[in-house]
Design a protein around this nucleic acid. Structure first.
Length: 264
DNA sequence: GCGTCGTCCTGCGCGC
DNA sequence: TGCGCGCAGGACGACG
């Protein structure tokens, strides 16, 4: 599913195709999921930014917010589940989304009332604003399980199920620990782990799972899944200590961890 | 205000 | 072989 590394990979590959070009039209099949798209027509894409897992097309006074959901991708070739089609000067971008969890809306710039997660979002994990101290302060605000807190996007932006599990494994932290119970030393480990996992995933173009749902705009898969240590590996040996990786459910999400080296 | 749970939606894998 | 069921997932709204 698209998390920060996948969305950033998509953004980088789309920039040459969309920035500086005028939107000629947007066709789609669902006004409830793809809102106010008519407002974008005739406007030039000035920049293409990313915030967490959201893509933000800067249209001047307006902004087009795109979330890829769990199966969405923006592609330069037509996939088998095209839900929306962006016609630009000299380029067409296809919003491919088999499971229809993706969203697209044109809003007034910075007005994220219809995207509360975006409005409350924590700092960018690879940016300067993300320090161990900031992470610790944000984790102190809740006693929810670490995994659930991280998925909320409030402590830090961009983590989804895969990179949460991988980061917690690298930091040797149990995913069910209350978020506000972390010591500053443990938070420093988590901070380092999140940055390391995301940097590595970004370098490999993200993760393409067996379902093949996520691919880059070029159609090429990502390769970070080869390096997953715990995600999707329940029943296999922990690559660090050899104990059997377990799967539990937290916040309704499958969660993979090593019961030996993530025991606290 | 905080936390939990149901909903959206579809493809896939499994069991019969 | 083919059918039907259950599961997976991020964000968000409803509810306690």
């Amino acid at each position: 599913m698209p998390e920060l590394p996948e969305v950033e990979t998509v953004r980088r590959m789309l920039v040459p195709a969309v920035v500086g070009r005028r939107i000629l039209g947007i066709e789609h099949d669902n006004p409830r999921k793809y809102r106010n798209t008519d407002l974008a027509v005739g406007r030039e894409v000035r920049r293409l930014r990313r915030r967490g897992k959201f893509l933000l097309f800067d249209l001047g006074e307006l902004e087009m917010v795109v979330h890829l959901g769990m199966s969405g991708s923006l592609r330069l070739d037509e996939g088998s589940h095209t839900r929306a089609r962006l016609e630009l000067e000299g380029a067409t971008v296809f919003f491919n989304d088999p499971r229809r969890f993706g969203k697209l809306a044109v809003v007034r710039r910075g007005d994220y009332a219809s995207f509360p997660t975006l409005a409350q979002m924590g700092p960018e994990p690879l940016g300067r604003g993300f320090t161990a101290r900031v992470l610790w302060e944000r984790l102190q605000r809740t006693r929810r399980p670490l995994k659930v807190a991280l998925l909320s996007q409030e402590p830090v932006a961009g983590l989804g199920n895969i990179y949460c599990d991988e980061s917690l494994w690298l930091a040797r932290l149990h995913p069910a620990r209350p978020a506000n119970s972390l010591t500053e030393e443990e938070t420093r480990r988590l901070h380092r782990a999140i940055r390391r996992v995301l940097r590595r995933a970004l370098a490999l173009g993200g993760s393409t799972l067996g379902d093949g749902v996520y691919v880059r705009p070029s159609g090429e898969p990502g390769y970070f899944q080869i390096e997953h240590s715990v995600y999707g590996r329940a029943g296999e040996a922990c690559p660090r200590c050899g104990a059997v990786i377990e799967r539990i459910v937290l916040g309704g999400r499958s969660t993979h961890f090593c019961p030996r080296c993530q025991s606290s």
